[in-house]
Amino acid sequence: MRKTPRRRTCGTMAVHHRLLEQDPGFRARQMALEHATMRRMAAGAARVGVTTIPVVVHVVYNTASENISKAQIDSQIAVLNRDYRATNPDKSKVPSVWKGFVANVRVQFVLATKDPNGKPTTGVTRTKTARKSFSDDNGVKFAARGGIAGWPSTRYLNIWVCSLGSDLLGYAQFPGGPKKTDGVVILNTAFGTKGTATKPFNLGRSATHEIGHWLNLRHIWGDTEDCSGSDFVADTPNAAGPNFGKPKFPHVSCSNGPNGDMFMNYMDYVDDDSMCMFTTQQVTRMQAALDGARSQIGT
């Protein structure tokens, strides 16, 4: 849903537009991807049933406590397998007007049992680093920068878990980007539900959100701090900007009353205990990514 811009568009879209203007290749790739996504969304998903995606978790630690336990990693995988199958019990918190929108992504995640060379693995790598924390510059994905290289992104979902600077719980990469940086990065204290996971980001929803981006979902507010942006999904109301904390229903913006923003969507910015759903059209968009740029991954 779109409206005529009432105010400036924010930095995100300025950067996006600058890239579009300065890098003809970026423009062509983005347009081709979006057109393909629209075609696939119209055609319906090619994959039937549940897609199983092998995951490798790269734990990059400086202190012993950052070297998170296998139990903490397992707790994150369990959250993903509830959230991406819509079996999370807290979906009962979805307001009644949107209960019919809650959708099963039909994706499940398993720690890889074979490494890229076909050898048995736990699906977890552990790397000691001299760096106290990383930023959002992809450094954790390169050994030369204190991190560790990912496994082939056509076969594995790479999840790097490390310490990050303030006000960053994680970041992701859309489908169709550079292979060497493909995957998601999650703050160690916002990963899983056990061990070092810390309130209010201790329910594993940062990974749910970032993997949403990895499957081509946009933020629910359309990445503009006004009403001009779109998330290219028809069944999420237009919203002015991110919601934080634990909003009370309804929170109205962009003339979207009476129900307001769908802030309980995984693609908003609320606390872990306040997000609990993907919508039908978001699932269609994710399945389009699995049929398109991510067609090689999973079984």
Binding site: C10, G11, T12, D167, L169, H209, E210, H219, Y269
Partner: peptide, 25 residues
Amino acid sequence: RARGRTGFELRPNGTLIEHGIGPTD
């Protein structure tokens, strides 16, 4: 700690830097 935080640097000469949240965080 927050999932994201925006802001701006206002300089006396009238220029500014806006700190925003990107589409993949």
